[in-house]
């Protein structure tokens, strides 16, 4: 059971991390119809949080499966997460709007 929860956490933080990285870019903010971030400092915030989320994903993966399987799991989940964010932006951008408006 906890294996499953951890996996959902690993995948979820990876998705969240990439979503934050994407929403630090003005072209994607425009896609989700959120206002531009005014200063470079303000765009750095979602990016830092995104990186933090990705790091959390790695930590959870190492916790779940140890060094070699954990690292392998993380790298593969990252790809899946990034594709999922790209597909969300392409086909259901509105789903990411709530996250985008957290940053102004």
């Amino acid at each position: 059971m906890s294996d499953w929860l951890l996996f959902i956490g690993i995948l979820g933080t990876a998705y969240l991390g990439f979503a934050l990285l994407a929403l630090g870019q003005s072209k994607h903010r425009r896609t989700v119809k959120a206002a531009d971030l005014k200063t470079p400092f303000r765009s750095a915030i979602p990016r830092c949080l995104g990186a933090l989320a990705l790091a959390t994903s790695l930590a959870l993966a190492l916790l779940r499966d140890g060094p070699s399987f954990g690292a392998l799991l993380w790298v593969t989940v990252l790809t899946a997460g990034a594709i999922a964010v790209a597909f969300t932006l392409a086909w259901r951008p509105k789903w990411l709007r709530p996250l985008a408006v957290c940053f102004v």
């Binding site: 994407a22 990034a82 594709i83 790209a86 932006l89």
Partner: peptide, 29 residues
Amino acid sequence: DFFTFRPGGKLPRSSLDLHNLTAVVGLPF
């Protein structure tokens, strides 16, 4: 262009986007 995928437009651009997306995010693999 890391997350760029524009399936709604012309085929040359959307296929290039898809090619780049799967290639770049999957690059380590």
